[in-house]
Design a protein around this nucleic acid. Structure first.
Length: 449
RNA sequence: GGCACCGUGGCCGAGUGGUUAGGCAGAGCUCUGCAAAAGCUCGUACAGCGGUUCAAUUCCGCUCGGUGCCUCCA
């Protein structure tokens, strides 16, 4: 299996760190609102990665976090539940949205049961330990409003900051100065811990005798949770391309400042799903949610298929036309799958996995599936099972009922008797039941409409 | 401003130095009592301008256009 690694900017052979278990960490959602379909596309690709590795014969441990403490979750929880204690308000809000996330992700066909989900707020102790260690080793310092990571110290220790992208002083000049309202030693330094503000949720923390009670910074959450759950190094870290810098860069810095040279062996990043050629964002109000899609009558699985039409490292554009094309393709696939009840199934083995193993080439995989359906009279169970396990698209459905089969037989009899009125009426009856029939040289074939 | 990516036929979306993936939509014909996602055929695509080459959509340069990151972000 081959996979693109952001660390090397190359497609590499995937070689797990350990034979027995492949360890994957995916940066999950910040649970303060509904996620949009751009977010979903990212989790679809992570799910496909998981499936492909499993299909290649490995056992996988896949962890995803919920960022359930940050500026947005705090602000929203205080607005929504002003009478609750801050931590209780936060938990209430984030529980609600993490459940909604899970139901969305399940609806689009992700294998939710194969991922271990973990809340940042349930891992505070691991974060305190990591920060304490960084502080003791002089990579972190205490400022007025928080504990910061020192990029300078990190570099002085011989480590490289900028392992995923080119970071240098000259190309970070224009836009970044505005954010130095904080008391940090360098604009590049980032908070690993933020000291409590009045009314905000906070966790006790004493660092070298100083009371820094407060809450974790975003980057430390993932560093602490991934290593706590998977050990260090682990195999693959996934996320959207926008997380490359600074989030993943900072995770690497935090997790390699102490001892370990390697944090994650492979970094897997997916490109964005755009709308009208632009990135989806709350501020442009150009995002859609799964609910919007469902309201227009499209299935979540059609959205999944639409996402898989694009390679994960290509930007793609969401449009309703495109979604409709995917919905139609899904319908045609199901009709092809239903042929197995009606015609002798194909007996050859088709190997669809090899397409997927080529850096998760989902467009090629879909094309191969189309071709398979076009050349066989009816697909076999093994291939349909493979499609389901590799892509999370279940095309299997039950045979039609005995009564419906009788209607089809009755229609055929009427046709043979040239009773066109009866035959057309039976065809209409079947259509009302969601079954369309057509007469072919192989006999009458039905398909669900 | 710095870094990176992209521009393929109505809409998506692969790919290759010379033989036109695939999906969806469309047109014509055939078959059919009618119908049909059944069969056949078609629209002769690769942003523009140069260059390299016997030959470029595919390599190089430039121009135009789009996107992302550099700041919270899937």
């Amino acid at each position: 299996m081959k996979i693109h690694n952001t660390r090397t900017r190359q497609v590499e052979d995937f070689k797990p760190l350990h034979d027995d278990l492949v360890r994957i960490y995916t940066c999950g959602p910040t649970v303060y609102d509904h996620i949009h379909i751009g977010n979903l596309s990212s989790f679809i690709y992570a799910d496909i990665l998981n499936r492909c590795i499993k299909a290649s014969g490995h056992t996988v441990k896949h962890v995803m976090n919920f960022t359930d403490v940050d500026d947005k979750t705090i602000r929203r929880s205080l607005e929504r539940y002003p009478d609750e204690p801050p931590i209780a308000a936060l938990k209430k809000l984030t529980k609600e949205y993490s459940n909604l996330f899970l139901s969305d992700v399940e609806a689009i066909g992700n294998s939710v049961e194969s991922v271990d989900f973990i809340n940042a707020t349930d891992s505070i102790e691991a974060m305190r330990q990591l920060i304490t260690e960084l502080y003791k080793n002089d990579f972190a310092y205490v400022a007025d409003d928080g504990v910061y990571f020192s990029i300078q110290k990190y570099k002085q220790s011989g480590k490289q900051y900028g392992q995923l992208t080119d970071i240098n002083e000259s190309n970070t000049s224009a836009a970044r100065i505005q954010n130095d309202e904080y008391d940090k030693e360098s604009v590049h330094d980032f908070a690993v811990w933020k000291i409590k503000k009045e009314g905000e949720p906070a966790w006790e923390f004493e660092l070298d005798g100083q009371d820094v009670t407060g809450r974790p910074g975003w980057h430390i959450e993932c560093s602490a949770m991934s290593v706590a759950m998977l050990g260090q190094p682990f195999d693959i870290h996934t996320g959207g391309i926008d997380l490359v810098f600074p989030h993943h860069e900072n995770e690497i810095a935090q997790s390699t400042a102490g001892g370990g040279e390697l944090y994650a062996k492979y970094f897997f990043h997916n490109e964005h799903l755009l709308v009208d050629g632009k990135k989806m964002s709350k501020s442009l109000n150009n995002f859609h949610t799964l609910r919007d899609i469902q309201k227009k009558g499209f299935e979540p699985l059609a959205f999944r298929l639409m996402v898989l039409q694009s390679h994960y490292r290509s930007q793609s554009n969401f449009s309703w036309d495109n979604l409709e094309a995917a919905q139609n393709r899904l319908r045609n696939w199901r009709a092809a799958a239903d042929l197995r009840w009606q015609l002798a199934p194909d007996t050859t083995n088709s190997n669809l996995l090899e397409y997927l193993q080529n850096d998760l080439d989902t467009p090629a995989t879909l094309a191969a599936i189309d071709q398979y359906f076009s050349i066989v009279s009816a697909p076999n169970q093994a291939t349909l099972d493979q499609i389901n396990s590799m892509l999370g698209i279940n095309l299997l459905s039950d045979d039609i009922s005995q009564a419906q089969k009788q209607l089809i037989a009755d229609r055929l009899a009427a046709r043979t008797a040239k009773d066109w009125n009866l035959s057309d009426k039976l065809r209409d009856d079947l259509k009302l039941a969601g079954i369309e029939v057509r007469d072919t040289d192989q006999g009458t074939i039905w398909a669900r409409s």
